[in-house]
Amino acid sequence: MKTIILAIVAAVLLAGAAAYLLSVNQKPAYQAFSTTGARVTPTDNLVGPNWSGDPQGRGAGHRG
């Protein structure tokens, strides 16, 4: 049983690491779709203040 527990812990840790790496690789649309010629000031209607698209949550936002 000990190895199973160990496996679960390892899985969760690795998943956490993957989550972090994946969210770091994630870009808001205003960055992904603007070229070197543009300096964009993001606005957040329709996508919520923290770009998650979730209008309620106030999670870590990519403001400005």
Binding site: A10, A11, L14, A15, G16, A17, A18, A19, L22
Partner: peptide, 12 residues
Amino acid sequence: YAHNYLAWPFML
């Protein structure tokens, strides 16, 4: 989220 993130330990 679970599916996306646990996939990596699975692959490992």
